[in-house]
Structures are given as C-alpha cells and as structure tokens.
Computed example of a mutant assay.
Amino acid sequence: MHTTDVVIIGAGPVGLFAAFQAGMLGMRCHIIDALELPGGQCYALYPEKPIYDIPGYPKILAADLIKQLVDQATPFNPVYHLNQRATELITTDNSFIIKTSEELTIQAKVIIIAAGAGAFDFNKPPLTGIELFENKSVFYFIKNRNDFINKKIIIAGGGDSAVDWAISLAEIANKVYLLHRRDKFRAAPESLRQIKQLADAGKITIITGYQLDRLIGSDGYLEAVVVKDLDGNLKTIEAEMLCPFFGLAQTLGPIAEWELQLKSHHIAVTSPHCMTNINGIYAIGDIATFPGKLKLILTGFSDAAQAVHHAYARVFDGKALHFEYSTTKGLPR
C-alpha cells in the first residue's frame, strides 16, 4: 500500500496544477489517470490546438501547456499512476483508501477529483478486426506527430480533432484523406478555411458522403481501407495509417458509486472550497458544479488552489495555514 497526503484523480491541466499547489504547501501527492501520459483531453484530443485564454499566454498549444504544468509540479515529485482508473473508495476514520484497476492501493487524508468530463474512452468504429491494427496503424489519438512523416493517412471524422490533425499532418505526410459521412464539418471557421485551402492546393483529399467499411492489411499493418456511401457503393483507398476521430464516450465511471452528491452527471461541491458532501473529498475543474460555475481551464486552476488550501488543516491535523505569496516564500525546500 502507498501512503500519501493527497490523491488527485485526473492528470489533466487542473489536476496537474493541483499537484503543484499541494507541493507548495508541503503535501505529498499521488496522481491517477486512465491515459498513458499526463494531459487529459488536452493530450488525447488536441495537443497541437492553440488555447487563447490562459493568463500570460496570448496563445499556447495544448501540448505546450501540459509540458509547462508538468514541469511546474516536477520539483515536488508527484507520483504518477497512469494507464489505470480509480475504481474503489474505502473511507476510514481519518483517511481514505483508493484502489485502482491495476490493483494498486493508496491511502491518503485527502482526495481531489479533477477528472474533467469523467472517465472516458474513444468512440471506435465497428469494424471487424480493428483491434488487431490498434497502436500499429490505427490510432484514436496522436502521441507523436513525427510517426506520420511520409505516410498515407486517412483521418475519419468531422469535428475539430479530425480537421485540425488533417491540417497539421498535411505538412509532413505523403498523402492525407479526410473522410466524413456528411458534407459539413463541425470545426472552427478558421480551420475550415485552412482545410479548403489545402484541398484546393492538392495537399488534402476530402471525401464526404462515405463511411468506414473494412480494413485491408496483415499483422496489424494497413494496406488499404474500404469505404462505403449511403447507397452501398464501395471505394478502396490505399493507406498506411487510419485515425478515426469520433470523439469520446464519457462517464463518471466508478466514481458515480462513491456516494457523492451528483447533479447532471457532475459532482456537486460548495463554493469556494470545492468540498463535496464527503468531508476530505474535493472536486475541481469541469467535473465539479456549483452555482455560477464556468467550465474554463483558468477557473479550474482557481478551484485547485481553493481546494488545496482548504485541505491543509486536514492533512496537517488541524494546523493553521499562514498564507504567503509565492513571490515571498519561493519554492519550499
């Protein structure tokens, strides 16, 4: 069993900032996340998409924001438990025990739930044998853009992720096809302008009115993808990579069974400290709801600071917190 002061569930931007805040107050911290790297949806869905409302950054890519937040928390040595989910909560007299899907057990005095929209998995197309190609030539998110250099790629989907990645990969790929079953895409106007410009220049081929039908290849590596229109007509496209970007299936998962007060698939908390109905458990960021709540990363950062400062007395057995600005005290040694 691991023992720590704080367990943070969720390694998205808000969870990472909570780890920094905990470190600034001398709290040991463990972080649990279902993905294989920190970053949450910023990492999984739009790492190269610019964010415009982070204070101090007129524009910052999502991946760069995550790197900065990881670096900010690193001096405090948070312990990451990735590729697993928090599945079970046990309440004791003065602490909590969290069990994960990888049979890990962590005891802590405080739990901070920063799970964004909740546990999620990628919506996968219902193609026979697709699991044989996953992580070899079929990818539901992109970890490393350079893996696609000089490749023939099909990107399926009509939202921001599909359009943004088509624009990005067109710079380095041999060929990019953007496949969507409808004529209209659900993406930002500037992205649509760029995608049209690239299509006019022959750098992207847009195929609408078709959907995925069958994969052709062996040993997990694609050779072609068969697509089908609404009339059943088939078309075969040579491709080495397929990226189906069909969004996420989101759910609270096991957290919904923890006797927390829920409201419209969110966790109800009291403002400003983001305490749930269970003393010692906080919820911050998009998963938390209270009157006037704004779903912005920057308000999630505020939630994190409020929750961690409020949790100080519980972690340190009633000790009063004497607030100091970071410019005064610097980083704890």
Results as ranks from 00 to 15, higher is better:
residue 299 T to S: 15
residue 319 K to I: 05
residue 184 K to S: 07
residue 208 T to E: 13
residue 150 N to S: 15
residue 196 K to A: 15
residue 85 R to D: 14
residue 309 H to N: 13
residue 316 F to D: 07
residue 280 G to V: 02
residue 116 G to W: 06
residue 25 L to D: 02
residue 304 A to T: 00
residue 203 K to Q: 14
residue 138 V to R: 12
residue 2 H to C: 00
residue 12 G to L: 00
residue 177 Y to V: 06
residue 199 A to L: 10
residue 289 T to D: 03
residue 46 Y to C: 10
residue 236 T to E: 15
residue 71 D to V: 14
residue 30 H to F: 04
residue 254 P to M: 07
residue 333 R to C: 11
residue 60 I to A: 10
residue 15 G to H: 04
residue 157 G to W: 11
residue 330 G to T: 01
residue 288 A to N: 05
residue 129 G to Q: 09
residue 309 H to C: 10
residue 86 A to D: 12
residue 55 P to V: 02
residue 211 Q to W: 06
residue 97 I to G: 09
residue 306 Q to N: 12
residue 252 L to G: 04
residue 325 Y to Q: 08
residue 313 A to P: 03
residue 143 K to G: 06
residue 263 K to F: 08
residue 16 L to G: 01
residue 117 A to C: 06
residue 229 D to S: 05
residue 271 S to M: 11
residue 194 Q to V: 11
residue 211 Q to Y: 07
residue 204 I to P: 05
residue 9 I to E: 13
residue 191 S to Y: 00
residue 70 V to Y: 11
residue 51 I to D: 08
residue 209 G to M: 03
residue 268 A to F: 07
residue 177 Y to M: 05
residue 64 D to P: 09
residue 109 K to S: 08
residue 7 V to N: 00
residue 223 E to D: 11
residue 106 I to P: 00
residue 28 R to T: 04
residue 284 I to C: 01
residue 22 A to H: 00
residue 8 I to T: 03
residue 213 D to V: 03
residue 49 K to R: 03
residue 39 G to W: 10
residue 51 I to Y: 13
residue 231 D to E: 04
residue 90 I to N: 07
residue 310 H to M: 13
residue 262 L to C: 02
residue 55 P to E: 08
residue 96 F to G: 01
residue 49 K to L: 04
residue 121 D to Q: 13
residue 183 D to Q: 14
residue 205 T to H: 12
residue 31 I to E: 09
residue 149 I to N: 15
residue 133 F to G: 05
residue 188 A to C: 03
residue 233 N to F: 05
residue 207 I to C: 15
residue 186 R to G: 03
residue 173 A to L: 04
residue 324 E to I: 10
residue 206 I to C: 13
residue 33 D to A: 11
residue 264 S to K: 09
residue 3 T to M: 12
residue 39 G to Y: 12
residue 15 G to N: 04
residue 249 A to D: 08
residue 208 T to K: 13
residue 185 F to C: 02
residue 156 A to G: 14
residue 225 V to Y: 15
residue 141 F to Q: 10
residue 306 Q to W: 01
residue 299 T to D: 08
residue 290 F to L: 10
residue 60 I to Q: 09
residue 86 A to R: 14
residue 124 K to I: 02
residue 81 H to R: 09
residue 257 E to L: 14
residue 2 H to W: 08
residue 59 K to W: 03
residue 113 I to C: 06
residue 322 H to N: 14
residue 65 L to R: 02
residue 210 Y to C: 01
residue 285 G to V: 06
residue 195 I to T: 14
residue 278 I to E: 03
residue 188 A to R: 14
residue 196 K to F: 15
residue 81 H to Q: 07
residue 312 Y to V: 04
residue 326 S to N: 13
residue 191 S to Q: 00
residue 24 M to G: 03
residue 220 G to P: 04
residue 308 V to Y: 08
residue 328 T to L: 12
residue 92 T to H: 15
residue 25 L to Y: 04
residue 171 E to S: 14
residue 273 H to K: 00
residue 61 L to S: 02
residue 292 G to D: 03
residue 34 A to Y: 14
residue 193 R to I: 14
residue 314 R to T: 04
residue 111 I to C: 12
residue 80 Y to N: 15
residue 54 I to S: 07
residue 33 D to W: 03
residue 302 S to W: 00
residue 286 D to E: 12
residue 48 E to P: 04
residue 281 I to Q: 05
residue 108 A to S: 10
residue 298 L to N: 12
residue 53 D to T: 09
residue 217 G to A: 06
residue 70 V to L: 11
residue 28 R to D: 03
residue 42 C to P: 08
residue 160 D to V: 03
residue 115 A to E: 12
residue 218 S to P: 02
residue 268 A to M: 06
residue 36 E to A: 11
residue 135 N to V: 04
residue 195 I to C: 10
residue 245 F to V: 00
